[in-house]
Nucleic acid binder design. Structure first.
Lengths: 170, 170
DNA sequence: GAATTTACGTCAGCCTTGTTGACTTTCCAA
DNA sequence: TTGGAAAGTCAACAAGGCTGACGTAAATTC
């Protein structure tokens, strides 16, 4: 590490964009941008009895209706105890419905109720609004690059999860 | 919201990249990529008595040596009480030095000790390695777009903080 | 048919990292 | 010189992660 220049000699081209300094800027950009990314939904959730964890659950249940608890677990990357706490309140409050599986009765299939859809829409509208503004300001070429780098940054297993969802939608 | 096509008629150009579906993919990409982004440092920290909050403090103290607690506070966006707990352990363990201000004795100026620099380097090496791989795989044009979109996604105030740091380095 | 595995739920308890509130010390300005 | 504002510290609490242990029902395997 600590390649001060990464100038000629590193591989053939100059690869100035791989400088430690450039990478550090990317890291900081990621940090600050993620704050913006979560800010709007967080603001909406604040005051309700829910938090970011509930938002994530609603998002992915909306995205993959009828998903099982186990599947949601692996997407979110948390323990079942942790998810269960969140899920329990969402079910009690009538935002999520848990249906016993028809084939495999051990499984629970999760779907949003109309009330759950409402909140999910409210949250994702806010998040998309910011995203839309950023996309519009940056333009389609930049957006393409944005997505490419993000995908390259994922762990292989998460990338697979992401691809699966990507294909499912549209 | 809920623009199913966002086809012609939205503004003039086709703007296919502003579809709700495209935005949703961007949101999910952000979610999964951030997991990868923090995974390597988290793994290193795990087992030590430190966490992500310590990493962030080390990063920005390294980046802006001699910064005051207050300044660090506004960069990190947490309360001083929250930062203080993290800072206290880092100081006790001899990773960070806190110097009473010369002009204003209320202020504490923070610098990393050699030991602190060591850990910071270890963490940021790991994080940069992933970043570097992603950048290399995506190419310079994509990286440019990545940075552009991230900047556009930040809150205006955070964007200013980010710009300031960006100018400071290099 | 019995034993094992799987999917899910739950209780208990811990840790990190965020929060608010109350308190000192220090500085500065009226 | 005194009263308020600012920087930092201590205490207590909440959200949301975690592990470990256990229970139950359903599916699968032997």
């Amino acid at each position: 590490m600590t390649e001060p220049g990464t100038g000629p000699g590193t591989g053939g081209e100059s690869l100035l964009f791989l400088t430690d300094e450039q990478l550090r800027k990317g890291i900081e950009a990621m940090f600050f941008a993620y704050r913006g990314f979560t800010a709007d939904p967080d603001r909406i959730l604040d005051g309700m009895d829910y938090g970011r964890a509930h938002h994530r659950a609603l998002h992915f249940i909306h995205r993959a209706p009828g998903t099982t608890v186990n599947n949601l677990l692996s997407i979110l990357g948390v323990t079942k105890q942790s998810l269960n706490r969140v899920l329990r309140t969402l079910i009690e409050d009538g935002l999520v419905e848990s249906r016993v599986g028809r084939q495999d009765k051990r499984e629970r299939h999760l779907v949003l109720t109309p009330k759950g859809e409402d909140l999910e829409r409210q949250l994702s509208d806010a998040q998309r609004a910011r995203m839309r503004a950023a996309y519009r300001a940056a333009g389609p070429v930049a957006v393409q690059g944005f997505r490419t780098v993000l995908e390259a940054m994922m762990d292989p297993e998460l990338r697979r999860q992401y691809q699966t969802l990507k294909e499912a939608g549209a």
